[in-house]
Simulated scan of single mutants.
Amino acid sequence: MPTLIGSVQRALRLLEAASSHCGGAPAKQLAREAGLPLPTAYHLLRTLTHEGYLRREGGVFVLGDAAGRLADGGLQQKRRSMILDSLAHFRDAVGAPVYFAVYREGEIEVMGVSDTPANPACEEWADFRATAHAHAIGQCLLGQLDEKTRRDYYDRRPVEGITPYTVRDMRTLEERIGSLRRMQPVTEHQEYALGTVCAAIPITAGDAAAAMAISLPVHQESRLLYVVDRLRSEVGALLSTLSFSISI
């Protein structure tokens, strides 16, 4: 049986007690609720306050910034787990690698990728954030932005060729984006990676511009539209999960 560290257990009980009082609680009350002798509670409360997990205000103890960071980390992990579970479902349903990305704070953020050894994802050999013009995910996200926001992105991330197939200038890219119909899949042929074709669909997920995508080896290009249509048909049932995952 593993050895339990008593002082850690006692400190955690104090944190749990403090978290149950929005306005804070005095040391005597926290000691009583945690089932600890008052001297032991005082010692642990001082330590927890010094480390930033608690804060003393007007004679009561409230949760500190460090405790908040622990909670935020838990939410981030929950969000990532929910996204990956959803992507694994889509991956198995369509038989291809699946990607999920958002445009947040001026950058492309790939929030999750799900693949298998038999169907590996496209290797990120050039930074996805800097090459939105070259891949289906980026073009799909850019198409959901207003012109001013897109131009701000281009100012920071210039359009340039990274393969012989990449769109070469901003004017051509803007013409392509302007021709897209609402909810139309965006496809690209070896524009980001030689030997790979991709397709992306826009996703309505809260206020964020979001996209889901699939990739295939170029010799399977004839399957591309079928697979992305299959993805689109699967997305509706789990879209609320993705929306929640973005918002937390």
Rank of each mutant, 00 (worst) to 15 (best):
G206S: 11
A213P: 06
Y226G: 06
L231H: 07
G236F: 04
D229T: 13
D207Y: 09
H219T: 12
S222N: 05
M212Y: 02
V227N: 01
A210R: 04
H219L: 14
G206W: 15
D229W: 01
V227I: 09
L231K: 03
D207M: 12
Y226I: 08
A208V: 14
S233E: 12
G236W: 01
E221D: 14
R232H: 07
L231F: 06
G206Y: 11
D207Q: 13
A213G: 12
S215Q: 08
R223I: 00
S233M: 08
P217D: 10
V227F: 00
V228A: 07
A210W: 10
A237G: 03
A210K: 03
R223F: 02
L231M: 04
D229F: 01
A210D: 10
A210T: 09
S222R: 07
L224P: 04
A213Q: 05
D229V: 00
A237Y: 08
P217C: 09
M212T: 12
I214R: 02
L216R: 02
E234C: 07
D207G: 11
S233K: 14
M212A: 15
G236Q: 07
L216S: 05
R232T: 07
R223G: 01
E234L: 03
L224D: 04
A209C: 15
L216M: 05
V235C: 03
A213M: 07
L224N: 06
G206C: 10
S215T: 15
V218K: 12
V228S: 06
A208D: 14
G206V: 14
D229S: 11
G206K: 12
D229I: 01
